[in-house]
Computed example of a mutant assay.
Amino acid sequence: MAFPPLYILRHGETEWNRAERLQGHLDSPLTERGRAQAREQREILSELLLPAGHVTVMSSPSPRALRTAEIALPDHPITQDARLLEIDLGDWAGRVLSEIRADHPEIAAATDPHMWKFTAPRGERLAQMAARCQSLLASLHGPTVLVTHGITSRVLRCLALGLPPEDLSSMPGGQGVVHVVEHGTARLLGAASDAD
């Protein structure tokens, strides 16, 4: 399936990102670095000449994503869509990564940096996230900026490129950057300041 041009942003750094506390559907404020990353995204997007009215802007309803969208795209109307939320981490949301690894040694031994997140007790599974991301992509008409989260961004890009969602860890991460997906290819604009 062909998709319109996509410009995918992860929210800027938050206080919980800095503390390695998992957010999922919970939230914490952007740090000053996170706000600077959103300004970097604004610069990248302005160079792409995406005028208001010629591109749709959609954001996760999480405050960290909405704030990033407001900074990065100050002249564009922003539509919130819950399909852009981050993975629901169930019982692990709000916990520090080191605590989870101590309680679950298999996670510390995991070779994939992201797939273990889909094993959280009472959390979202990969098939569930893939279904909501596929639903979102199928609803798009015309060039679209999507402001979302680290795991969601990776799954969206896999699906838009025709890759299985299990390949999500092969997708580059980063805050303060823009992932462009069009004509079946992906490119990264900006210097990634965070690999996750």
Rank of each mutant, 00 (worst) to 15 (best):
M1Q: 07
I8Q: 03
H11Y: 10
G12F: 06
T14V: 11
R18C: 07
E20M: 14
R21C: 02
L22S: 00
L22E: 00
Q23N: 11
Q23G: 03
H25E: 03
H25Y: 10
D27S: 13
S28Q: 11
S28G: 12
G34H: 03
G34L: 06
A36N: 12
Q37S: 04
A38Y: 06
Q41T: 09
I44W: 07
I44H: 07
I44G: 09
E47A: 14
L48R: 14
L48V: 06
A52V: 11
V55Y: 10
T56L: 14
T56N: 13
V57I: 08
M58E: 04
M58I: 14
S59F: 03
S62F: 04
S62H: 09
S62G: 11
A65L: 07
L66N: 05
R67S: 10
E70H: 11
E70G: 09
I71L: 15
P74D: 13
I78E: 05
I78G: 02
Q80P: 11
D81W: 04
L85P: 00
L89Y: 02
L89H: 01
L89K: 01
D91Q: 15
W92T: 00
W92P: 00
V96L: 15
L97V: 04
L97F: 12
S98I: 12
S98H: 11
E99F: 04
D103G: 13
P105E: 06
I107M: 00
A110E: 13
A110I: 01
T111K: 15
T111A: 13
P113R: 12
W116Y: 13
K117F: 09
F118G: 00
F118C: 02
P121Q: 09
R125L: 05
R125T: 07
L126S: 11
L126H: 12
L126V: 08
A127N: 14
Q128H: 09
A130M: 10
A131I: 04
C133E: 08
Q134W: 04
S135R: 14
L136G: 01
A138E: 14
L140V: 04
L140M: 09
L140S: 03
H141S: 14
H141I: 08
P143A: 14
L146R: 06
V147N: 01
I151R: 01
T152I: 08
S153W: 03
R154P: 00
V155R: 02
R157A: 10
A160V: 08
G162S: 12
L163I: 01
P164H: 11
P165V: 06
E166H: 11
D167P: 01
S170M: 08
S170L: 15
S170H: 05
P172K: 09
P172T: 07
G174K: 15
G174A: 13
Q175N: 09
G176I: 07
G176H: 07
G176R: 07
V181P: 01
E182V: 03
L188V: 11
A191V: 13
A191D: 04
A192R: 13
S193Q: 14
D194K: 12
A195T: 12
D196L: 08
